[in-house]
Design a protein around this nucleic acid. Structure first.
Ligand code: FES
Ligand code: FES
Lengths: 144, 144
DNA sequence: TAATTAAAAGACTTTTTTGTCTTTTAATAA
DNA sequence: TTATTAAAAGACAAAAAAGTCTTTTAATTA
């Protein structure tokens, strides 16, 4: 469904939302442990998201990654688009060069319903909402 | 959603169902042209599906790939499982080592609905059904 | 201001996926 | 039964994804 990069990105964003809700920042090492990802790999992913304005960061002592209140309203769709592009939102399920109602592949009519559900889900789900459930220990970002 | 290999496999299966419905066989070159895929690549994919009993073939002159009436009832789920494994049917959407109701990731409750829709769709859709729509020129396997 | 801290940047490696090419095997037809 | 045809098999190669390591830059703190 999503690339490994994108899975890590989403998990990291939720973790950062949680750890920085009091206005503090969280470092790469803590993030990597918190979501069980390779440290340098998630660093690169977050740098990329930083350049795109999806996450915020600060260097130096007491530095790290954080999300402000508006960042916590970021939708999963924003993250997925930034990392994986918009293939999942508009690409053909059977790999035709483009998806089209006028020139549909055999799976088109079934597929666009599912694609719409995925799109709706990603558009409506905000990082902050997921973080709240995490706070209540209702969900988890790693398997211990 | 699916790997390139799996996309080609599904398109090839539908094409073979169409071209062999009169009891004849269709060669690799024709299949590659018909679905716009690399010739040697789809050959390997179909050999693999052949070994797994998902498609039938015959060597020599007048040889090629074909599907009998029972093969035409093959579901997309069978093809997807044979090629991509069952990640899409049971894997965690955020990449946790395993998906579980007891230890759900933040996306779990939203994700299992979509996964169920995908599973239902793949289980109910048969190669022969898709081939019929193709015959009526309602759908296409390539973009010209 | 100098030392320290932590992200940013970028080069590099490994693994997986995707794609290509050549040789072998098995079927048919002359 | 020999020549021909087409899939099977398997070795390679290229590209993309995933992961690692080192150096640089920009903050903070002493
Ligand atoms: S054309 Fe394939 S999903 Fe739309
Ligand atoms: S645990 Fe992630 S989808 Fe079920």
């Amino acid at each position: 469904m999503f690339s490994k990069t994108c899975e890590y990105a989403i998990r990291a964003m939720i973790f950062i939302a949680q750890q920085s809700k009091d206005g503090s920042r969280v470092g790469i090492k803590e993030i990597a442990k918190g979501i069980d990802s390779p440290e340098h790999f998630i660093a690169k992913i977050l740098q990329d998201l930083g350049r795109k304005g999806v996450v915020q960061s600060l260097k130096g002592p007491t530095g790290g990654f954080y999300l402000d209140n508006s960042g916590r309203k970021t939708t999963l769709a924003t993250i997925v688009k930034a990392v994986d592009g918009d293939d999942i939102f508009s690409g053909c399920g059977l790999g035709l060069k483009q998806c089209s109602d006028k020139h549909p592949c055999p799976l088109h009519h079934e597929f666009i319903n599912i694609r719409k559900d995925i799109t709706n889900m990603l558009n409506k789900t905000k990082v902050g909402d997921l973080q709240e459930q995490l706070d209540k220990k209702l969900t988890f970002l790693r398997r211990d």
